[in-house]
């Protein structure tokens, strides 16, 4: 029994890494600019499309590097054409603007890259491997590619953490997140900071798009992953980077475990069909959090000014 449950847990955690990456993109932009970026999912789709299509023409590494450039250009366009014009507008107006960006990106992605299902081949053998054979009878069966993806994402997150914690620009980003007017008063240019967070979110979107695309192929439904990021945000708190990561893992693991463990019980006790738990579990969990802990798991410590 333990073996399969652990396998489910690990599979769930790996999906959770993906949710965490998308949520991370949200949190970065929300913290720095107060914009709730509905277009995060569309950015993941767009990034995945460019990696997939470019890698048909060139080695993967080059395709990824080029995609990074594309996402930076995109960030620049969004900052210059949209955010800069709407500065000081209400949050809801900015949110509407990101809705527009989301639909534009979905359509524009199709215009540029096409609308079929494309493959991203990370070059890692897909065959599952047995781990911990000495610990469990039979060991654990885990997809090698997923392990590689999880490790890659962990490295990315660690790099981001270092960037935020110790660099001059990272410090400025945190300052803007704390009090953007005060940040402006000491000479930190908000436009530049916004450009940087959108670009970083774009890069995070590339990582998410690659993981997702290599697993399930690149297609329109990727942009819907943003909807899964919403419960993650509620769980982790809108402004917490660790919250996005832990929240993503909890939801990823939770929904898979619920499907495997709760499903059979519902069938046995209530004679339900028992499927589809994976689809609603995250939202139920988010609802419970909204009722009992609205600031989320790691909702920013609110420091009262003395």
């Amino acid at each position: 029994m333990l073996g399969p449950v652990l396998e489910t847990l690990i599979g769930g955690l790996l999906t959770g890494v993906l949710y965490a990456l998308v949520a991370l993109g949200f949190v970065l932009i929300f913290k720095a600019s107060g914009v709730f970026n509905f277009a995060q999912g569309a950015m993941v789709l767009f990034a995945a499309l460019s990696v997939a299509r470019l890698s048909e023409m060139m080695p993967l590494v080059v395709a990824v590097a080029l995609s990074v450039v594309i996402m930076i250009v995109l960030a620049y366009a969004i900052e210059f054409l949209v955010l800069r014009r709407l500065v000081n507008q209400e949050g809801i107006i900015l949110f509407m603007a990101t809705l527009g960006i989301a639909y534009f990106l979905e359509g524009f992605g199709e215009t540029v890259w096409g609308s079929n299902i494309y493959k991203i081949n990370l070059g890692i053998p897909k065959e599952p491997m047995f781990f911990f054979e000495s610990v469990f009878p039979g060991g654990l069966l885990i997809d090698r590619e997923e392990v590689a993806a999880a490790v890659g994402c962990a490295v990315l997150v660690a790099a981001l953490a270092i960037f935020f914690q110790v660099t001059r620009v990272g410090r400025a980003l945190r300052a803007v997140a704390d009090d953007h007017q005060a940040a402006q008063s000491v000479g930190i240019p908000l436009n530049t900071i916004w450009l940087i967070v959108w670009a970083v979110s774009g890069i995070v979107a590339i990582a998410a798009g690659m993981v997702w695309g290599s697993k399930l192929g690149v297609q329109f439904s990727i942009s819907l992953v943003a909807l899964k990021a919403l419960p993650v945000l509620i769980l982790g708190g809108l402004t917490s980077i660790p919250g996005a990561i832990v929240g993503g893992l909890i939801i990823g693991a939770g929904e898979k475990l619920a499907e495997v463990l709760l499903g059979p019980l519902l069938v046995r006790w209530f004679d339900l069909a028992g499927g589809g738990i994976e689809n609603w579990f995250a939202y139920m969990l988010a609802l419970v959090f909204l009722l009992f802990r609205p600031q989320g798991l790691f909702g920013e410590r609110i420091i009262e000014r003395i």
Binding site: A172, A175, D178, A183, S185, R305
Partner: peptide, 19 residues
């Protein structure tokens, strides 16, 4: 109202001034 960056340390606050 001073407007220090509450979640940055005192020293990090000072360093933001050198941006």
């Amino acid at each position: 109202g001073r407007r220090c960056f509450a979640h940055l340390t005192v020293e990090e606050n000072l360093l933001t001034g050198a941006f």
